[in-house]
Design a protein around this nucleic acid. Structure first.
Lengths: 147, 147
DNA sequence: GTTAATGCAAATGTTTTGCAGTATA
DNA sequence: TATACTGCAAAACATTTGCATTAAC
């Protein structure tokens, strides 16, 4: 609760401190991204935004997703080939588990990734700044409910 | 050497056994994918193919990449947002390390991924069939040569 | 009042598809 | 010879951009 207020202030602060204007559209989009908790794509975000502001345009959604990404407010994932998915950046490092049948996305902690990063970075002389682990498979309900 | 012959026969066999025809275009595309060793996108593959057969079309490249993927002959990766990259499937499980500056792709063995898979699968009751680990950062030459 | 952001429509770039002609089995 | 595959052009799709209007500072 205090956390939400803090985050809201944070986003607004990030915007104004980089001389970006705090528009109604941006506030709405950030709000929806935060509420969703999960992983939205541009189209889905656009549809949700239209329920609150029927005049908002898809370009505004795209333009602002790019802005938020650049400002580090959200993260972009390439789960499937056709859409990018966006999620609000949380402090906690986590990875993703996807069901190939129903599309469900589960987040899991991945404490090994730090150790990984160091080993591999040293071995190949890379300065690693991101590790993504993605596992795909069948969730329990999809597994039982078919074939 | 024996391996290459074996693989060639393998691809041909996979094609005919699923009543797909072994056309000159398919042979060429598979040959180029195999030769490249690395990670080609459709456009790059198309350009290389045109050097050998100037009449080949981009649609043929796309159609066959999808076919090869479906038959399990190649793997598709989403390294960046605009292109998909394809690589011939090799038995060895490996992961990818990408330089965000020059785009270099390094493959590395990831022996932990099997253990990972089992733990996470058990924990979330998923039947996991693929693990992808992708690290991004700066390679040594990009690190020294700028900023 | 300036200047950045928006909405719209048109453009872009990648990937897909319909169809008539061509080549494989 | 029957039918799958190809090449071409057009379509489809997500995303980006130009520009006149609107709103934030």
């Amino acid at each position: 609760m205090a956390k939400v207020v803090e985050r809201k202030a944070g986003a607004r602060q990030v915007l104004s401190s980089s001389s970006q204007r705090v528009t109604a559209q941006r506030a709405l989009l950030l709000e929806l991204l935060r509420q969703s908790g999960g992983h939205l794509d541009a189209e889905e975000l656009y549809m949700r935004a239209r329920k609150k502001n029927s005049r908002i345009s898809l370009s505004t959604v795209y333009r602002n997703l790019q802005l938020f990404k650049k400002l580090g407010l959200i993260e972009e994932h390439h789960f499937d080939e056709e859409h990018h998915h966006y999620e609000v950046k949380s402090g906690a490092e986590h990875q993703h588990l996807l069901c190939i049948s129903c599309g469900k996305v589960v987040e899991f902690a991945c404490p090994l990734s730090r150790e990984f990063r160091n080993n591999i970075g040293k071995q190949y002389d890379f300065d690693i700044n991101d590790v993504e682990v993605r596992m795909t498979g069948l969730c329990s309900s999809c597994r039982t409910s078919d074939k």
